[in-house]
């Protein structure tokens, strides 16, 4: 029989792996093997390391991460579908000294919220965006996303995404990098520990960009959806490496000269 022991303060003192202060003490609703949990964890660690937990307002999207606000121990608001960058703009413009970030999926950011994200970048809003790209609509049950790959089977492209009638995937990091207001736009992946470490460094950099007032910052994270891809979690990680990275190459798409000077 497994006995669950709540860790004592003393145990936490000696622990090498604890829940970040920036997290609330609840379990998430995410499916087993989904990398939303990894992305949340990285943000939580960055907020802890920067000591900004009590100075931060998050903006949650519509999609699987609609309840992100339950998991972060910071002030949080829940936006309408795709409008998180507009809502973040409203918050940041009246609270310029606070750290404001949005957390958005591909349906939210790259489809219905295309106008809001492009113009937030064009205006150089001093906000940070964490963009989860898993090439599918998770919450509504696996429909085609703007980032679904050609030929990819989803519940709304049952014969595979036909580019003749359903178009091509949208590469957001590449497009956003064209905006003069963007200071930092990169794409990372969460499919293995080495890439997760790189993703964390990018998230830290993106928050530092905001703290330094160097414009819009966005980290696109290639992520898994084992449930709606119909794969085991391990196979899903492999699918990111084999299929998503070739379609969405990892890299730094925009690092302004001022951002390149940031030290932390």
């Amino acid at each position: 029989m497994v006995t669950l022991i709540k860790p004592t303060f003393a145990m936490e003192q000696n622990a090498v792996y604890c829940r970040p202060q920036a997290f609330t003490d609840v379990s998430t609703h995410y499916c087993p093997g989904c990398t939303h949990g990894v992305a949340h964890r990285l943000i939580g660690e960055v907020i802890d390391e920067m000591g900004i937990r009590e100075n931060t307002v998050g903006v949650a999207p519509v999609g699987c991460s609609v309840f992100a606000y339950n998991y972060f121990n910071t002030d949080f608001v829940e936006a309408a579908h795709g409008r998180a960058p507009a809502m973040a703009t409203g918050i940041k413009r009246v609270l310029p000294d606070k750290v404001v970030f949005s957390y958005q999926g591909d349906g939210d950011l790259a489809s219905i919220g295309m106008a809001e994200i492009m113009h937030a970048a064009a205006r150089g809003e001093h906000i940070t965006v964490i963009f989860i790209n898993n090439a599918i609509y998770g919450m509504t049950g696996g429909q085609m996303a703007p980032t679904s790959l050609p030929g990819m089977k989803t519940t709304s492209s049952p014969n595979g995404r036909d580019v003749e009638t359903q178009g091509y995937p949208v590469r957001m990091a590449e497009m956003l990098a064209q905006m003069d207001g963007a200071g930092y736009v990169v794409r990372r992946s969460l499919h293995d520990p080495a890439n997760i470490r790189k993703a964390k460094k990018a998230i830290r950099t993106a928050f530092e960009v905001q703290q330094h007032g160097l414009g819009f910052s966005l980290v696109e994270l290639l992520s898994t959806c084992p449930t709606n891809w119909g794969m085991t979690p391990v196979d899903a990680l492999g699918w990111v490496n084999e299929h998503m990275i070739p379609a969405f190459p990892l890299g730094d798409y925009k690092v302004s000269p001022a951002v390149a000077q940031i030290k932390f």
Binding site: V57, V59, V77, A79, A80, R83, A86, M87, A88, T89, G90, I91, R93, V94, L95, A115, E116, M118, H119, R123
Partner: peptide
Amino acid sequence: RAFVQAESEVAAINMVYGAACTGV
């Protein structure tokens, strides 16, 4: 004070939504 000419009325009201959440 804050002024933004938004990209659309949709964005404008959602900026209002965000700022309103802060109590101003």
